[in-house]
Design a protein around this nucleic acid. Sequence first.
RNA 1: GGGAGCUUAGCUCAGUUGGGAGAGCAACUGCCCUACAAGCAGUGGGUCAUAGGUUCGAGCCCUAUAGCUCCCACCA
Length: 874
Amino acid sequence: MEKTYNPKDFEDRLYKEWEETGCFKAERDNSKVPFTIVMPPPNITGQLHMGHAMDATLQDAVIRFKRMQGYVALWLPGTDHASIATEVKIIEAMKKEGLTKQSVGREEFLRRAWAWKDKYAGRIVQQLKKLGASADWSRLTFTMDEKCSTAVREVFVNLYNKKLIYRGNRIINWCPCCKTALSDAEVEYAEEAGSFWHINYPVEGEDVCLEVATTRPETMFGDTAVAVNPADKRYSRFIGKRVILPVVGKAIPVVADEHADMQFGTGVVKITPAHDPNDFEVGLRHNLEIVRVMNDDGTMNANAGEFEGLDRYECRARLLEKLKQTGALVREEPHTHNVGHCYRCNSTVEPIVSKQWFVKMKPLAQPAIHAVIDRKVSFIPERFAKIYYNWMENVKDWCISRQLWWGHRIPVWYCEDCGKEICSKTDPKVCPHCGGSNLKQDEDVLDTWFSSALWPFSTLGYPDDSADLEYFYPTDLLVTGYDIIFFWVARMIFSGIEHMRKVPFRYVLIHGLVRDEKGRKMSKSLGNGVDPLEVIDKYGADSLRFSLLQGVAPGNDTRYSDAKVEACRNFMNKVWNASRFVIMNSEGNEIKPVSEVRLSAADKWIISRLQSVIRDVTLALNKYELGIACQILYDFTWSDFCDWYIELVKPALYSGDGAKKSVALSVLNFVLNNTLRLLHPFAPFITDEIYRSMPGVCGTIMKEDYPRYNSKLAYKKDAAGFEGVMEVIKAVRAVKTELNCPPSRKVTLYVLTENKRLISSNEESILKLAGAKDIVFLNSAEDSAEGCVTKVTSIGTLFIPMGELVDAEKEKARLEGELEKVTAEISRADGKLHNSGFLSKAPKKLIDEEKAKLDKYIKMREKIYEQLKIFDNK
RNA sequence: GGGAGCUUAGCUCAGUUGGGAGAGCAACUGCCCUACAAGCAGUGGGUCAUAGGUUCGAGCCCUAUAGCUCCCACCA
């Protein structure tokens, strides 16, 4: 083995081998229990970013854990066609060639899109592989694969037939840049500094005006009324009259509607049903005309008269100028308001009335809400259930049609002969109503999230009653960021219930965002993104993985920092070197099972610690608390195993005593073997690379069992005793460092104790780790030599002769300091044990523990008193 | 307007049934001791945001306050 950990030497090689030998394949086996995770399919436009890296690492760690536990562990991967995102990219690319969508036509455009997919879908898969993702790539699915398209049509037609999908003229969010409708979820709101323009609308036939205020004056061409509150006495006399739209000169009615807020602005609101969701509702109530004033690209249409053809903002500027000239503009005041933006191109969206396809949400939302209430689906952490409820309870109908070309085309045809609509799972040749053959398919495609919503079952073979579906569905765990709960998680839940009659997954593990070192969101525009592949290249995949999991709590954001990865790389190096130590020493020796050797106290201690670690890590993993599991393993491996146990065992290895060495090697191999298996889900590469080099091991660690807690190996009593020995060692070390005594200077250790056996049986360990040359037992404190530092421990009093380094005054002060500490402990424990409330209500175990502590400290205090007395006598 | 989260060591964060405050990094001291200087030993550093409450006992539960962050809705 190399002296330092060098992940490049083995990561790619191991991954290739795992893949080639089918380690990731999940095959149905009715004698075993399945455990399934479907991977959130990354967009084909995307490159692996830190968010993916964390998401994938969480899933990979869980799936590897479950696989080792003997489940048929399926991690089902895929990629997403990402309708709008990809289309935007392709248009950009075409623009460089001087081409547009329209100029190349639909067919050529789709050809280019598929070429894009062929080129880039593989890229992110390769990147996930670099990370060590143990997904079953033989099942890799693309959202526009035949099977997904079949599922999409099946679902569409079923919902259509149930009247849960309908087409209608409704207010939708329109992106003038992408030239498509968007769902509510695809709009991001941001506060913007704008203006509030007050405009006078003269009352017809009177010499008065109604003053309205608006943030979007250019929509006034579409005004078909002004509204006042029915309770607003200021304006009641105008209700039913008409006002003249400035510039346009058209008369529009004054209506009474609750929508007008008396407190807000002037209390008079212009009503533009075609361009505002609230106004649309008002329009319905008062049967108002709907006048659209904008084209799909955000320019003004003929209804804007002289402003036709101008961009919406250009129109606004010129219109305001004109209003000012004609005196209709009363005033302009600054006003900040929330403006909606397209989540893909960030353009300001326009609410526009448009004929679109919708999914009726209310009937679907109800059972989806109950599924979470009834805990058929549970969020981790639970607080995200509230966010989910809030959304589901207030969800509006889902606009699913997109005026795009890349995506699942809406399976509806219009008969040009009889004008009827045909919704069909297969392409119809003739109209079933009139037999005509002039059929034209709806031009639009579906929201990319429509197919994502079906992911947990479309990937497993829906709508067929496939064996996979039967075996793996419902899946067990979904891992994703809180940013796509609405887009995806919620929609999968209602879709699963509606189409499969079963929820799609039992647990949803939510993670946060990976931010940059300063806590900012990583983004392209800020240029602060860190490329996981570069990190892997520099530190190795295991280090990156560990750094993304360690100390991270579910649902919380985390910051990426090189320092953190470096610390994890150091940990990997630690694991590497500890293993190297064990393996080198094992060479040429027979390694006996631990059950066949006589264990020392130290051996029992480390085995006992290992058992607690196995128990705690498994517990944490079962609760999907991966951050905690990592932390436990880190501490155990570094502190307990490396810093303590390996050091403890060195004398036995180097003593030349074959029997002792044999025991040490047994335990070293046993603990290392278990530790590697425990660590494998988090750091798959290094653990496997080492595992293969261990004596008596053949094959990959991936096929091994995850360690199981064994109560017979808990050795509680022995472990506790040995901790006393460790206390002695620490005490001596501390004294030496405090007095600036070089470690190379070996001391004689005088010990006054009732635990002579414990000390003498661990003499070698104490001498080695404490830096002592011999141990001498005293019969009385009086026997201690001059110039000693005294340390009282729970298993005995130590006298450490430090000669000239000892200052009697300081030593006395130090002892008095210790007395103070011990006394404080005594009064704390004593206080508790004299508290009747504590005695009557605290668990017995706790009371016993307190009693034991009290005993211990009282004994220690006695010893310290004794020492101080000796001091005073000298 | 509604909701959520955060506030713990200089920095970044853990702390999940309430039972003596933790890690990493940074700082300081001393060490090349045959696994590892990507290391070892040791040290210092916290009224767990503030104020109340519940409890024998609160970083953890309840109430209020402050600051920061986010989500949803939205006033034209």
